[in-house]
């Protein structure tokens, strides 16, 4: 079972940079991970860690002046004859016909702010019908039925009436549901959700997370969940990728990353979060300093100036690579792998 479990999407050594007037920002600097059908991959990190740019790179919609400078993004397709084949998304042009048909149809995106991702001048129903007919061969009537079906699937009450509603007539939670319905209209196999619940309240967040989970159970799609909230990751993800300043610092199964985290960043981040179960009113362990601005990323391991376990002369000189430290558990830290032979 383990052996033939092929990933549907593989990202290999992805590097995306922004070439601005002030300098080059290496937003994503060598990210590698796999996404499997029926599973949720969580990408977690703080601001500037490159988690959103990773999503944009996969969809080929990195805004100017950014572009993918290196790496591969492989999408696995399974045609009728049972013979799987892979397409390298990075080799397709961003606005090529093929990329456009993949975007939305095979990989769909749900953004943080539903109000800006939905068109304000079209009804919810028309937006879903339009998207469905663009990628699937449906008549208008069929697409309309599909829209009602999808809206009730995502839990919008009175779906027949809701298809005629404009986005501003819905509350934040309902808009996010409508956006998910829109993303699902083409039966994507991969759903990328970029901070889907950040703008929502906890009880609404619980509703949306519950919805995503049950949708995944029903249609077996892969979900890539991008968030800064460790709680949401612990709740939802099967696999976790922890990023810091463009680099993947740790990845592995969720129980391992949370239970036996190895990277000093993951460890200190988890410790610094107040939990309902922690002792109240005591000083929390913190990570010293602040996240550096992406323009002045520190040399070597980007976390070394804030790292409690920094090895002077090593961490500030060399960039660590991702190394296996256990079953599917990768860490990029010199505490766990030898220092490269130096030429100096």
């Amino acid at each position: 079972m383990q052996d033939d479990r092929q990933p549907i999407l593989s990202v290999r050594n992805l590097k995306t940079s922004f070439f601005t007037d002030e300098g080059i920002v290496r937003a994503v600097d060598g990210a590698s991970f796999d996404v499997h059908l029926g599973q949720t991959l969580g990408i977690v990190g703080e601001s500037g860690c490159g988690k959103s740019v990773t999503a944009l790179s996969i969809l080929g919609i990195v805004p100017r002046p950014g572009r993918i400078v290196e790496g591969e993004i492989l999408l696995r397709r399974e045609p009728e004859d049972g013979q799987a084949h892979e397409i390298a998304l990075t080799s397709l042009g961003d606005s090529s016909r093929e990329m456009r048909s993949i975007r939305g149809a095979e990989i769909a995106l749900v953004f943080q702010e539903p109000m800006t991702s939905l068109s304000p001048v079209h009804t919810i129903g028309n937006q879903i019908i339009g998207a469905a007919r663009l990628h699937r061969n449906l008549t208008r009537r069929e697409a309309g039925e599909l829209a009602v079906e999808l809206l009730s699937l995502v839990g919008i009450p009175r779906a027949e009436a809701a298809i005629d509603a404009y986005p501003f007539q819905l509350s934040g939670g309902l808009r996010q549901r409508a956006l998910i319905a829109l993303a699902l209209s083409c039966e994507p196999r991969i759903l990328i959700a970029d901070e889907p619940t950040t703008a929502l309240d906890v009880t609404t967040q619980a509703q949306i997370l519950d919805l995503l989970r049950s949708l995944q159970e029903q249609n077996g799609m892969a979900i890539m969940l991008i968030t800064h909230d460790m709680g949401v990751i612990a709740e939802m993800a099967d696999q976790v990728v922890v990023m810091y300043l463009g680099r993947v610092v740790e990845e592995g199964p969720v129980e391992t990353v949370f239970g036996e985290s190895k990277h000093p960043y993951t460890q200190s981040l988890l410790r610094s979060i107040p939990s309902i179960h922690s002792t109240p009113k005591v000083q929390l362990p913190t990570i010293t300093g602040t996240i550096p601005h992406p323009y002045n990323r520190p040399a070597g391991c980007p976390f070394h100036p804030r790292c409690p376990d920094v090895i002077p002369g090593v961490c500030d000189k060399h960039e660590p690579e991702l190394h296996s430290v256990g079953d599917e558990h990768l860490v990029s830290c010199f505490l766990y792998h030898p220092v490269p032979e130096t030429i100096s």
């Binding site: 906890v202 619980a206 997370l209 709680g231 949370f258 988890l270 309902i276």
Partner: peptide
């Protein structure tokens, strides 16, 4: 409200 808070602990 209490039950909705996601905890940073997958267990």
């Amino acid at each position: 409200l209490l039950s909705a808070v996601p905890q940073p602990d997958p267990t």
